[in-house]
């Protein structure tokens, strides 16, 4: 397991290098002098020349790339043009907000999706199975922004049950420690605030969970159907094991590899692509952060934002690969 982890980690290096190269080229692919673009058309030639020199744009490209890599390695993502503060310091609260929401949504999606898939497989071809699969089909094709707006309309405006926007109650804001509010409130023993944070998570969480939940339910069903037909399941039953244990112990674990793949992919999408949902629910996440940067043409932030999202994708992939190996003993030996 250890050797496998090291091997997988070392495979990350070229991937990360490639990513940095792409993000680096992005800013240089924009026609014209980036300094000019950054400063706008009205800027004086002196100012442009000064910024060109400051950004090292007069250097050959490969030196610029090496400089860029150097700063990345030291954890320096540059400064935001808008706020003038280092991006590395600025980005974490946004990232934490997104991670918290994505994890919350994924927990809902996995819990409901997997169990629905199991039930569907168990009662294959019954009306219950058909009902669930139709629901899943509707789920995967659901326009999430519409769902979000509907949720707000019903549960906030009409029923007044849950808050529409934000992460916490603005009149009693959470004191941030890690910026993962569920963790922070627990660390401070503020259970009232903990509940409040959960209440804020529910609507965006459910909206985000819908598509992954539907996909997970479908993949679980087909995967379980396949596993339930296998010889070792017959063996388990011939030992005198009850169906519940056969399903949750022997079948689910074998069926989990494809489910895990989907969870990884969807988690990546949730972390990187939830801009719309974050906007609707006023969620101060990384999507909102990048969206704001685009409006202000804050190129360093856009560049770093893309890099961070890509890095998250890669990390999730790594975690999924390690989980494969943890579940399936055959993988380490291949």
């Amino acid at each position: 397991m250890f050797a496998y982890t090291i091997r997988r980690l070392s495979m990350l290096i070229p991937v990360l290098l490639g990513m940095a190269l792409i993000v680096f080229s992005l800013i240089h692919a924009i026609p014209g002098n980036p300094a000019q673009i950054l400063l706008g058309q009205q800027a004086s030639p002196e100012a442009v020349a000064a910024l060109t020199k400051e950004m090292g744009l007069d250097q050959p490209l490969y030196i610029q790339f090496v400089e860029y890599l150097k700063s990345l390695v030291t954890g320096d993502l540059g400064d935001s043009l808008r706020t003038r503060s280092p991006i590395t310091e600025e980005v974490w609260p946004y990232l934490a907000a997104t991670i918290e929401l994505a994890l919350f949504a994924m927990v809902i999606a996995v819990f409901i999706g997997v169990n629905a898939g199991i039930l569907s497989a168990w009662f294959q071809n019954s009306w219950f199975d058909y009902l669930l699969m139709v629901a899943a089909l509707i789920g995967v094709s659901m326009p999430i922004f519409w769902l979000g707006l509907m949720e707000q309309y019903i549960f906030s405006i009409k029923l007044d049950l849950l808050p529409t926007t934000g992460r916490d109650n603005i009149r009693d804001p959470v004191t941030a420690i890690t910026h993962l509010y569920l963790l922070d409130t627990l660390m401070q023993g503020r259970f009232d605030q903990f509940i409040e944070v959960i209440r804020h998570l529910i609507l965006p969480g459910v909206a985000l969970a819908t598509i992954p939940m539907a996909i997970i339910a479908r993949i679980t069903r087909s995967s379980m159907l396949e596993v339930m037909r296998s010889d070792y399941i017959r063996t388990a039953r011939a030992k005198g094991m009850g169906m519940l244990k056969v399903v949750y112990k022997h079948s689910l674990r074998n069926a989990f590899i494809p489910i895990l793949t989907i969870i990884g992919l969807q988690m990546g999408l949730l972390l990187g692509g939830a801009i719309l949902t974050e906007t609707i629910f006023g969620w101060p996440g990384i999507g909102n952060y990048i969206y704001g940067a685009i409006q202000f043409r804050d190129y360093p932030v856009i560049q770093s934002g893309i890099l961070i999202v890509a890095a998250i994708f890669v990390c999730i992939n790594l975690i999924v690969d390690l989980l494969y190996a943890a579940i399936d003993p055959r993988i380490k030996y291949r």
Binding site: S230, D231, Y232, R234, T235, A236, A238, K239, H250, R253, N254, I327, D328, P329, R330
Partner: peptide, 15 residues
């Protein structure tokens, strides 16, 4: 008790 024809697939690979 029962044993089966396919020893290669009759044991659960993950346990």
């Amino acid at each position: 008790a029962m044993i089966f024809q396919e020893p290669m697939t009759s044991l659960n690979p993950l346990f």
